[in-house]
Structure formats: C-alpha cells, structure tokens
Design a protein around this nucleic acid. Structure first.
Length: 664
RNA sequence: GCUGUCGUAGCUCAGUUGGCAGAGCACCUCCUUGGUAAGGAGGAGGUCCUGGGUUCAAAUCCCAGCGACAGCUCCA
C-alpha cells in the first residue's frame, strides 16, 4: 500500500524506501545509522529518528555537533526544562517552547512567579532527568479531536488545544513523551533525555504574551541555552560576557561620550564633548559623500502644526508615537520624521524636470514617543538625528537613483568598518496604495539595481511599506550580532498627499516619486552600534581624542610637552597634554582607559632630539620618532580614515640617531 | 504599555535581626618629578529614587508612583 519514495543521499546514491518509513530505518537502509546521527534533513526540514519520511528528495543525516543537531538538542533540552518545571510547580500549563538562536525558551502559565533563584533549582531537576536517561518516544494522534482528547486527559491544555484546533484537518499531530511528561510537539527530539548531557544553562526569566499578543494571556518565559560540549557552553557564556563589556551604555559613560537623565528626559541622550566629536565626525563624513553626489542640504522646523501631520497622514497612523504641544490654542507636533518638512521645501517653488532628481538631505532632529519599555540607551531613543534625505525624481529615474544609493550605502559601511552587509528587498504588502504599474516599476527598479551591482539580497515578499517597496540593510558587528541600519524606501503616497508636481519636457505637470533614505539611520543608534563594534576603541578619524601628550616629568618636560601639543593642534589633530602632577604611569593608564589611540611620551631625550616616544593603545611603546613625522603620520591616518592604527609597532628605540620614517 | 528584577556618594558596590551612612575608584589639597597600565598622605562628597504607611526608631518592613535593566520577534 505504501508507495516507495526515493531518497537522494549526499554522495549521489539513491535509496528507495516505503513512504512512512522512520528516519532511523531509512538511515539504516542507507548505511548511515550511527550513534552520532540524531535525525535527517529532508526537504529543509529536520526530522528526528522516530519521524516517518513521506517526501522524496535529498536526505541528509543530521549529526551531533552540527547546527542542525543543535536544534534537536535544544528542543529536547526545552522539554527537559518543561518536565523539571512540571515536577517543581505542578499547577503549570505549557504554551510553546521553541528553539531560538543560541538556545531555547519555554512559555509557562503558573501561579508561581519565577524568580532568578528558581533557575538553579530547575537546572538541578533537569540534571536529574538527564541522569534518569528516559527514552523520548514519539507518537501520533489519529486526528485533531483525538489529540485534544489526549491533551485534556493528561494536562491543562488551553494553549495546546488552541494550537491543535488551528492545524489543517489532515495534519499529523504528534506527541513526545519522556517518563511522566508528555507534550504536544512537532519535534524533532533526541532519542533519550540522557543525550541532553550537561552543557546547558538556564539564563533568564521574562514575561511574554501568548502568541505575542498584548491582549492575550501573560505568560512566564524561561530562556536557556544548550550545547554539545561544556567547552561550547563556556565559550558561549564568555561571548555573552564579552558583549556585556561592550555595552554602549556602559562604555558611553566610561568614555565620557554621553549621559542620560531619566528624571528629566527619559530616552533622550545628552551628548558630552567627547561624544559630540564622534557625532560631528560622522556628520561631516556623510556631508562629504553627499557633496560629491549632488545632494543639497536643508533644515526645517522641529515643531509643526498638527494640520500638516493630518495632511501627511501621520495623525491617523503615527499619532501615538508623537509629542504634542499647544500654543495660542493651536496644536503643534514635534516632528517624528523629516518627510513633511522636506515636501514643503519641494513645494516652495514650481519644479522643472530639469531640477530632477532633487536630492534634499537633512540632518533633522526627530522626537518619537517610544513606549518606555522599548527604550534602550542609544540604540532606541526618543530624540535622535537621522542622516535623512528625500530624493524627488521622475519614475524613469528611479533605477539609477536606487543603484547609486545601494552603492553609496555599501561604500559607507565598508569605510566605517562593517564588512558583512545583508540586504532585504521588501515588496508590495497585501494592503497598499498606488497602482499595479507603479509597484511593478518600483519593485523592478529596486531589484534590477541590486542585480546590476551584483549584490546578494533576500526577497521579503509582502513586507514592504503600504506606500512603496524598500530595501533594508543589516550589518554584522565585530561579535556577530546583526543590526538593521540603512533603509531605502520608495514612496508613491507622499507626492500625492502633498500634490507635488514637476513640469515635464512637454510642459505637462507630472507627479514625481520620492525616495526616503538614511544611510547611518540615526546618528544615535549608529554611534551606539559603533561603540559596541569597536568596543570603544574608535579608529583615529573618529576618536574623540587622537593624541595625548604625556611628559615623563611634568616639572622638567612641561615646556616641550606644550610645544608638542601645539604641533599636534597645528596639524588639526584632536590632542591634549596631561600636565598634572601624577606619575607618568598613571597618566598612561588614564589615556589607555579612555582608549586614546596615540600617546606621545616626552622626556629629556625627546626634548633634546625633538622627537616623541609614540605609544599605541593597542601595541604599547613604539619607540621614538621625529615630532613632525609622528604628527604627519597621525594626520594622514585621519585623512585616510584608516580603521587600524598605522604608525608601525616596531620603530627604532628611544634616542636612536636615525629614527624610522613614519609611514602613512 | 505588560511581566519580572533592581534603585545607597560622579562610578562600581557593601550595609547583619529595623538601632549613629560605609569601601574602592574618580574628585580636591599637600608631599612626590618619575621612562611606558594605578607613588603617598589628607579632605570633601548622601533627599539611601519619590510620596505615603507601620514602628519608640525605617536605607532596611508594607503600599503607590517614577526610573533603569531583561524580555514581550523566532509561533506544537
């Protein structure tokens, strides 16, 4: 009765088995069964040993120690955790417990309120369950109603029943059991709790909503992680620690870049002098890029009448995120976006096709009322400056503009040190404005621009904004976390709402298309990400302080130190001299803690030879160099925006007759 | 906004059973003038988040508010 299906193995062999054969048996037929094989990947889906194979096609064993194997391990660890929780808190009801990046979670409903101290208790119970080595058994219900019956017989199953009811009628409904614990579950799982091993750790407690819906039940979520070896677990925990050390909120304060005053301005950064240097360096960098690409810059008011926001549509879609104020009985809103102001500048004169594309850039300060719970230092704040621009162009110019933008974004990211960039092209969502032709045109322009420059991208069908398709850019930072930064959005709606027109070559008034785009996104968020990316050690061109002059003896060397400082400043370097009475070692430490890229240590020998003893924050003492050479080297490094420090780590030693020539 | 945890000096954090508010770093002053990551001594610094309650007595216990942090995206 069972039809045969053909499984294609990695080595090109083909194995034929009856449909419905268990993965374990199929593996045996293929001669691939072994202790470290935990399941198989069939058509992109990971199946465990006890699951029947029903689809022909590629059939790849999943081994312990692989990413696919980890998914199985983590899923089972989540079940062991659930079993432990059920033992300790018998009133618990289960919701869902999926595998996530680096771990897993399980959502519970129980009267007990989980506190961090519960985690070790639960871990101890989990260790017992692992030691018990309970076989994990898969079973299939014959249908949805039987599944629900089984569920309600064995446990409180409000959430699980809801899941079953929403499955398609013919869906296979599976259960997994281990010892006294049974859970509705799609799998895949290990063959025994013993295989979970010891390399797991519960990490945190959090609230979560059933189905991520604020209106539904609030559940309690336990997060954990699991690995195949204790070394892997230790490495992962170390990575988390490392990320904590890089936290921009901590470094922002320690490096004197930025502070927050939650009592007067929650979610709004106060930029200190050192942070403002970085801020300005980035802005002038972007301005340089814009000048070369025919952008012009504008500035528009921060507080604008609500009537404008009605016209732009923000009052109906974005009101909950806006700040308002009333003056002279008129209601005004603090701008959350720059587009309406930009549109008014466009509107200020009659535009000709000769003016297009018109690229209006604005470093506009925006305020958004973000819910208090989502605020997070610089990466999510209520006041921020976007490196925004709106490009007004004729529809037929869209392709070139998009192409130029994608190239620009990639150039900028490479130069500021983000090597890994991912692009997502989001297309027309189910509910949208604009004609089919407009969408076809815009989506085509975006896609062909991406293809033309050979960029790899992911297609996100239906993920676009209601007013047009978009390209989002994600970068990976130095420790592998990914961040969404730039966005390029085509907008059909705004020109219509503001009735924007241009006079075409034939004298007819036509409607331009507008492209919203930000490269860095918001300066605040971008700097927050950069702080974490560089762990606070900014490349010289961005460093708040590039050179610190340190006299060996303040009493004897202060005059020469001042002279060196003057030489640095004359070359345009951001420099200071530490003329306090502390010891030299203390001064070096202070500069090191602030991650100043270069220290120029000057004592009697240097004053005599008109040299400086260069110390790099990353390499330490680099020996003496002529003052002029060292200054020029740092200046050149700044101009070139080098990501690494460039003065060679091994120059000649202090007081040498012929110092090495500084390279640039 | 919701759930949980937390809130003590500029920073990091102690503070026992409810009984005089503490340390290190940073800051200021003095001594020290040194050769590549912390010299020594002294001093100043507090609305113990805010408001209310319990108590002879509250940083500590209770209630409310505010704020910070983790999470609320990965859907058996």
């Amino acid at each position: 009765m069972a039809t045969e299906i053909a499984l294609k193995l990695a080595d090109g062999r083909e194995v034929r088995v009856p449909s419905g054969t268990l993965v374990a048996d199929a593996l045996r037929s293929a001669g691939l069964a072994s202790e470290d094989v935990l399941g198989a990947k069939v058509g992109g889906e990971i199946l465990d040993l006890q699951t029947p194979v029903r689809a022909a096609g590629p059939f790849l064993p999943v081994r312990a120690g692989t990413p696919e194997g980890l998914e199985i391990l983590r899923h089972s660890t989540a079940h062991v955790m659930a079993q432990a929780v059920a033992r300790l808190f018998p009133d618990v009801e289960f919701a869902i417990g999926p595998v996530i990046e680096d771990g897993f979670y399980y959502d519970f409903d129980t009267l007990h309120v989980f506190v961090p101290e519960d985690l070790p208790r639960i871990e101890a119970e989990m260790a017992k369950i692992v030691a018990e080595g309970q076989p994990i058994r898969r079973s299939e219900a014959s249908g949805k109603s039987e599944a629900i019956a089984t569920l309600t017989k064995t446990q409180k199953a409000k959430f699980k029943s809801e899941i079953v009811r929403e499955l398609p009628e013919d869906a296979a409904v599976s259960f997994y059991s281990q010892g006294e614990f049974t859970d509705l579950c799609r799998g895949p799982h290990l063959p025994s709790t013993a295989r979970v091993g010891k390399a797991f750790r519960l990490l945190s407690v959090a609230g979560a909503y059933w189905r991520a819906d604020q209106k539904r039940e609030q559940l309690q979520r336990l997060y954990g992680t699991a690995w195949f070896s204790e070394q892997d677990l230790a490495a992962y925990l170390k990575r988390r620690e490392e990320a904590e050390k890089r936290d921009h909120r901590k470094l922002g304060r320690e490096l004197e870049l930025v502070s927050f005053r939650p009592e007067v301005a929650p979610g709004m950064p106060f930029w200190h002098p050192r942070g403002t240097v970085i801020y300005n360096a980035l802005v002038s960098y972007v301005r340089e890029k814009l000048a070369a690409r025919d952008y012009v810059e504008i500035r528009t008011p921060h507080v604008l009448s609500s009537s404008l926001w009605h016209r732009s549509g923000h009052m109906s879609h974005y009101k909950d995120n806006m700040f308002f104020t009333t003056v002279d009985e008129n209601e005004y809103a603090v701008k959350p976006m720059n587009c309406p102001g930009s549109a008014l500048v466009y509107e200020a004169g009659l535009r000709s096709y000769r003016d297009l594309p018109l690229r209006l850039a604005e470093f506009g300060l925006c305020h958004r009322y973000e819910k208090s719970g989502v605020l997070a230092g610089l990466t999510r704040c209520r006041a921020f400056v976007q490196d925004d621009a709106h490009i007004y162009c004729a529809p037929e110019q869209l392709g070139d503009e998009i192409g130029a933008l994608v190239a620009l974004v990639r150039e900028v990211y490479a130069e500021v040190g983000f090597a890994n960039i991912r692009m997502d092209l989001s297309t027309r969502p189910p509910s949208s404005t604009g004609t089919d032709e407009m969408w076809r045109n815009a989506e085509g322009a975006l896609e062909s621009a991406l293809r033309r420059i050979g960029a790899e991208f992911r297609l996100a069908p239906g993920e676009g904004a209601f007013y047009g398709p978009k390209i989002d850019f994600q970068v990976s930072d130095a420790i592998g976390r990914s961040w969404q930064l730039a966005t390029i959005q085509v907008d059909f709606s705004l020109p219509k709402k503001f009735d924007l027109v241009y006079v075409a070559a034939d004298g007819v008034r036509k409607r331009p298309v507008v492209v919203h785009r930000a490269i860095l996104g918001s300066l605040e968020r971008f700097i927050g990400i950069l702080i974490e990316h560089f762990a606070g050690a900014f490349p010289t061109w961005l460093a708040p302080e590039q050179v610190r002059v340190i006299p060996v003896s303040e009493e004897k060397n202060a005059p020469y130190a001042r002279e060196v400082l003057a030489a640095c400043r004359a070359a345009g370097l951001r420099a200071s001299a530490d003329l306090g009475s502390e010891r030299m070692n203390q001064k070096i430490r202070s500069a090191q803690v602030l991650k100043v890229p270069y220290m120029f240590v000057v004592g009697g020998r240097e004053a005599e030879n008109r040299t400086v003893s260069v110390r790099r924050r990353d390499e330490g003492d680099c020996g003496a160099q002529p003052l002029a050479d060292a200054v020029q080297a740092v200046a050149a490094e700044t101009r070139s925006r080098s990501l690494a420090l460039t003065i060679p780590a091994q120059a000649t030693t202090a007081g040498a007759k012929k110092p090495a020539k500084a390279t640039t």
